[in-house]
Simulated assay, not measured.
Amino acid sequence: MEKNHPEALPRLNELYAGLRPVDDVFAYLGRPLAQRQELAARAQQAWELVSSRQGSGSEAFHWAEQNARSIAQTAKFTVGGAEPGRNEHTLDQVGYRDFHLDVRKAPAAARAWLNVARPTLNVGTQFPEQPRDVAIAKSFDVLIHLHEVREAHRPAP
């Protein structure tokens, strides 16, 4: 950006100011949720700014865009509720709030349901992702369902 689009550098630096430092994720997680959400929105704006510059196709531009994407994608911490028809929505209806299931030993009726591909949100390092069709029984040996997942908090000393 500095070489090919120096005019965008002040705005990019402004957007990145105060974002999560790589070496102290616990300090970042200790910030109030509203502040982290505002920082996540700024990270998204920074990614959009970098991507809009469509560099010369150079390797440096691709690295800059990948870095901006990574920062934006890992700055988000909230996910809405599962929509009807998604695996998570049905799993939320089970009588136990949190549970695990050895999918290989599930009763026949459950296995029939688990063998059908349905939209599933898999939250991992590539988040945010769109739901993808996943047949749980064909993809996993063990299912661990947590009704609610929150960001980590640093334990008190």
Rank of each mutant, 00 (worst) to 15 (best):
R36Q: 04
N122L: 14
R31V: 03
P131D: 07
F99Y: 15
L146I: 11
L29D: 02
N67I: 09
E88A: 12
E148R: 14
L15W: 06
L39E: 13
Q45H: 07
Q37V: 01
G124V: 07
E38M: 08
E59L: 06
K105G: 00
S52A: 15
D24G: 00
R53I: 11
F127Y: 14
R154Y: 04
P131T: 01
V149M: 12
S58P: 01
F99L: 10
A137P: 08
N115K: 06
L49C: 14
G55H: 10
P10D: 04
R42I: 04
S56H: 07
L15H: 05
A135V: 04
A82T: 01
G80F: 05
G55F: 07
H100F: 12
D23W: 15
E2L: 12
P128I: 03
A34R: 08
L114E: 02
G124C: 09
D92S: 15
A82R: 11
V123K: 07
M1W: 11
D92H: 08
A109N: 13
M1N: 01
R150M: 09
L39C: 04
E129V: 15
E83T: 07
D92E: 10
S58G: 03
V116K: 04
E7W: 04
E48W: 08
W113K: 08
L101T: 10
Q130S: 09
A27D: 04
F26S: 12
V22G: 00
V103E: 03
V50T: 01
W113C: 06
E148P: 03
P6Q: 11
H145K: 09
E38Q: 15
R104D: 10
P84Q: 03
A109D: 08
Q66V: 01
F99S: 02
L146K: 14
A108K: 07
Q73P: 00
V142L: 12
A108Y: 07
D24C: 07
L12T: 05
Q73D: 13
D23Q: 13
K76F: 00
T78L: 14
G30I: 04
A72H: 00
F140I: 13
I136P: 01
E65F: 10
N13W: 03
A106P: 01
N4E: 15
E48I: 02
R53P: 02
A75R: 02
D133C: 05
S52V: 12
G81S: 11
D133Y: 02
G80D: 13
D98Y: 05
G57L: 10
S139A: 14
G30E: 01
V149S: 06
